[in-house]
Lab assay of single mutants.
Amino acid sequence: RPMNAFMVWARIHRPALAKANPAANNAEISVQLGLEWNKLSEEQKKPYYDEAQKIKE
């Protein structure tokens, strides 16, 4: 299954978030990633939607 825009973004940002929160488990990191993603504007998300579309094609 191809990655969606959030997954493209999260793949880039997960390592830094995990390093900054070494005690957090994957579920907690995923929740935090979701919160951070939701704070982004549509303009900030656009490159990730574009990349996800390329992956689908």
Rank of each mutant, 00 (worst) to 15 (best):
Q44P: 00
M3I: 14
A27T: 10
L40Y: 02
L40P: 01
K54H: 08
E42W: 15
I12H: 06
R11S: 11
M7W: 15
N38Y: 08
L35T: 06
W9N: 00
K46R: 10
A20W: 05
R14I: 04
P2Q: 13
A18S: 11
K46M: 07
F6H: 00
E42Y: 15
E51L: 15
H13G: 02
P22F: 02
P22A: 04
K56R: 13
R11V: 11
Y49W: 07
Q32V: 10
W9A: 00
E28H: 05
N26C: 11
N21P: 01
S30Q: 12
I29L: 11
A10S: 09
A5K: 00
G34D: 11
I29F: 02
N4I: 11
R14S: 05
V31S: 07
L17T: 03
R14Q: 05
S30W: 15
E43R: 10
V31H: 13
N38L: 12
R14P: 00
A24S: 08
K46Y: 04
N26I: 09
P22G: 03
K45R: 10
N25L: 05
Q32H: 04
E51I: 15
V31D: 05
Q44H: 07
N38E: 11
Q32E: 05
Y48K: 01
I29T: 02
E42N: 10
K39P: 00
N26S: 12
Q32G: 03
P2T: 12
R1I: 13
E43I: 10
A20T: 06
A20G: 06
L40A: 01
Y48Q: 00
N25S: 15
R1Q: 11
Q53H: 08
W9V: 00
V31N: 07
A10I: 06
D50N: 08
A20K: 10
R14F: 13
N25M: 04
Y48I: 01
N38K: 13
L17E: 01
E42H: 11
L35E: 07
L17G: 01
Q53V: 09
I55F: 09
N21W: 12
E36T: 10
K39E: 04
A23D: 13
E28D: 07
A24P: 02
H13E: 03
K56D: 08
K39R: 10
I12V: 08
I55N: 08
P2C: 15
K19R: 11
E51H: 07
P47S: 04
E51R: 11
L40Q: 02
K54S: 07
A10R: 03
V31I: 13
V8T: 03
W37K: 00
A10L: 08
K19Q: 09
E43T: 08
K56G: 07
S30H: 12
E36I: 15
P15E: 12
F6A: 00
S41T: 13
M7K: 06
G34Y: 15
L40D: 00
R1V: 12
H13S: 05
Y48C: 03
G34L: 15
P22W: 03
V8Q: 03
A20S: 08
W9M: 01
F6R: 01
I29M: 04
L35Q: 10
P47L: 04
L35V: 10
N21M: 11
N21K: 04
P22Y: 03
H13Q: 09
E36M: 15
L40E: 01
M3A: 09
N38T: 08
A16E: 09
Y49H: 07
Y49A: 07
N26Y: 15
A23C: 11
Q44V: 05
W37E: 00
H13W: 12
M7L: 12
Q32M: 15
V8N: 03
A16S: 09
V8C: 07
A27R: 13
L33E: 01
R14E: 06
E36A: 13
K19L: 12
H13D: 00
G34Q: 15
Q32L: 15
R1C: 15
K45C: 01
A20F: 05
A18Y: 07
P15L: 10
Y48G: 01
P2W: 15
R11K: 13
E28V: 05
W37Q: 00
A10Q: 05
K45M: 03
E51P: 02
Q32W: 14
M7A: 08
L17K: 03
N38A: 14
Y49I: 08
N26G: 10
I29R: 02
N25Q: 05
I12L: 10
W37F: 03
N26A: 13
Q32S: 05
N4L: 14
P47D: 03
L40S: 01
A5M: 02
P47H: 04
N21H: 11
E42D: 14
A20E: 07
M3G: 06
P15G: 09
E36V: 10
L40W: 02
W9H: 01
Y48T: 01
A23R: 13
K56A: 14
N21L: 08
I12S: 06
P47I: 06
K54A: 10
A52M: 05
G34T: 15
V8L: 15
Q53W: 06
W9C: 02
A20L: 12
E43P: 06
V8H: 04
H13F: 12
E36R: 09
E42I: 11
K45Q: 06
E28S: 07
N38C: 11
A27N: 10
A16H: 10
A18L: 13
K45A: 02
A18M: 15
L40T: 01
A27V: 09
A24L: 15
A18D: 03
K46V: 05
M7P: 02
N26F: 15
A18Q: 13
N26K: 12
V8I: 15
K45H: 01
A16N: 07
K39G: 05
I29S: 01
P15K: 12
F6S: 00
S41V: 03
Q32D: 02
A16Y: 12
A10M: 07
F6C: 04
L17R: 03
K19M: 11
Y48D: 00
K46C: 04
P15R: 11
Q44Y: 05
K54N: 07
Q44S: 07
D50R: 10
Y49S: 04
A23P: 02
N26W: 15
M7T: 07
P2F: 14
E43N: 08
W9P: 00
G34S: 14
M3T: 10
E42A: 14
W37A: 00
A5V: 02
E36G: 04
S30M: 15
L17W: 08
D50L: 13
N21D: 04
I55A: 06
L33D: 00
A16P: 04
K39W: 04
A23N: 14
S30T: 13
H13A: 08
R11A: 14
R11C: 15
E36K: 09
A16V: 14
Y48N: 02
A10G: 02
R1G: 11
M7N: 07
A52R: 02
Y48S: 01
A18W: 07
S41C: 03
K45T: 02
N25F: 03
A10D: 05
E43G: 08
R1K: 14
R11I: 11
N25D: 10
G34C: 15
P15Q: 10
I12F: 06
P47R: 06
K45I: 02
A10V: 09
N25W: 03
E28R: 05
K19N: 05
E36S: 07
A23H: 14
H13P: 00
K45L: 02
N38G: 10
D50F: 10
A20P: 02
A23Q: 13
R14D: 01
I12Y: 10
K54Q: 09
L40N: 01
N38S: 14
A27P: 03
K46I: 05
A16C: 13
M7S: 06
K56Y: 13
A52P: 02
Q53R: 13
A27C: 12
K39H: 04
K39F: 04
Q53D: 11
P15T: 09
Q44G: 05
S30Y: 15
A20I: 07
A20N: 08
L33T: 01
L33K: 01
E28W: 15
I55S: 06
A24H: 06
E42K: 14
E28Y: 09
E57M: 09
K39N: 07
A5G: 09
E51M: 15
L40R: 01
N21Q: 06
W9E: 00
E28K: 04
I12M: 10
W9T: 00
